[in-house]
Write a protein that binds this DNA or RNA. Structure first.
Lengths: 220, 220
DNA sequence: GTCTATACGCCGATAGAC
DNA sequence: GTCTATCGGCGTATAGAC
């Protein structure tokens, strides 16, 4: 392989997508994960053939089973890692003991930008859950409950100290998470609407939704 | 079939789901549509076997092809009718020449309640688009653009007359539609959270998001 | 670890009787 | 219009050489 051309089995991919799986070793296992995530995101789990994944990773069909026991295990690894990263993201954004307003805007901005920048990965982890085995599905649902609990706590704190005005905390929590999650469904990269810009817009919308300070632009 | 028992090929279904397809004739074609919508919603298009659909409609596997040319045609009919009903819903809610505030709350309440009550159907029409043939997919995307345009116009009108404060109309339109669409993903029937109640809650959230009157609770 | 070749079951769709 | 029977093809996963 000459230095001026990329190897044939390393397709030219968005660097962001590779970055998510950087720590996966060996390289062949990582290429398979990335290829699987791309295929699952575009076609869905059941419409993706193991041949698609192998070809995307520059391998023969049989090569998949050296690194993973089944197609479902690929989905599981993607989904598990994705949810762990989502949780880490939220915990980072809420750390430091800031007030509810700062925590809410930080979380929504980060979560939204993550769903936009990694829309390929997040499309899989948000919309292909039902293709997991029952055991794996149960495990992921537990992680999703943690996500819900962390955001709900911010709203509860904001209501308790009077910063927020929220008639129905559980449903508003769902609505806020809905906004960010659904970004994975429709977002495509655009110079007009970068992940960071969208994150800021959505953080502002979130603040308005909870009746927080800065949301009363109309009252001026 | 005795009068006190339901016929074996008419499973005990939510009446709401039957109501959506009431006008489809003959009855066998309707039963197939309903069975397909249920199966597609739970398992997804590619994980659903024609045998599942036939069994759900109380027919043999071959019976499907008397009424539909392919499994994809079933998905297409469900998706097309669903989008037509969505558009009709929005047009009804915006009719009458009311102001932007009344139109927005009516549309969001109706759209949200529709996604909740018909979460089985809407889960299919919102999340299985990618399994349509290219031609059918293109046709549906046109209908979706109409939906987007109708909601965007409400926001534009509200901004023009000063009722709304929206920094980015296209993105806020997407966010509002996101909220309602995503209901199809997570909603399940609950006495605490009826479709109508959720619709009212979301209409209030929508008004806050656009900085409309009644959203400035914090400013008092 | 990667390949070629293939086993084996499943699925969409059709044939043809009634 | 519905059935029984079945075709042809595809797709996951494995066997075994290198």
């Amino acid at each position: 392989m000459s230095p001026e051309t990329a190897p044939a089995n390393e397709p030219d991919r968005a660097p962001d997508l590779e970055a998510v799986w950087q720590q996966v070793q060996p390289a062949a296992a990582r290429r398979l994960l990335v290829a699987a995530a791309e295929a699952f995101a575009v076609r869905g789990f059941h419409a993706t053939r193991t041949r698609d994944i192998a070809q995307g990773a520059g391998m023969s069909p049989a090569g998949v089973y050296v690194h993973y026991r089944s197609k479902e295990e690929l989905l599981y690894r993607i989904t598990l890692t994705g949810h762990q990263q989502t949780l880490a993201l939220i915990r980072t954004a809420t750390a430091g003991g800031a007030g509810p307003t700062a925590r809410l805007t930080a979380v929504i901005a980060a979560l939204t930008a993550w769903h936009a920048r990694q829309h390929t990965t997040t499309r899989v982890i948000e919309y292909e859950l039902h293709s997991l085995t029952p055991d794996h599905h149960t495990e992921i649902v537990h992680l999703r409950r943690e996500v819900d609990g962390l955001v709900r706590q911010i709203l509860a704190d904001g209501v308790a100290c009077g910063d927020f005005d929220v008639p129905d905390v559980p449903t508003t929590t769902l609505a806020l998470l809905s906004l960010s999650v659904d970004v994975a469904r429709w977002y495509h990269p655009s110079p007009r609407l970068t992940p960071e810009h969208l994150g800021d817009l959505y953080a502002d919308l979130a603040l308005r939704m909870v009746g927080g300070a800065g949301s009363a632009a109309v009252a001026d």
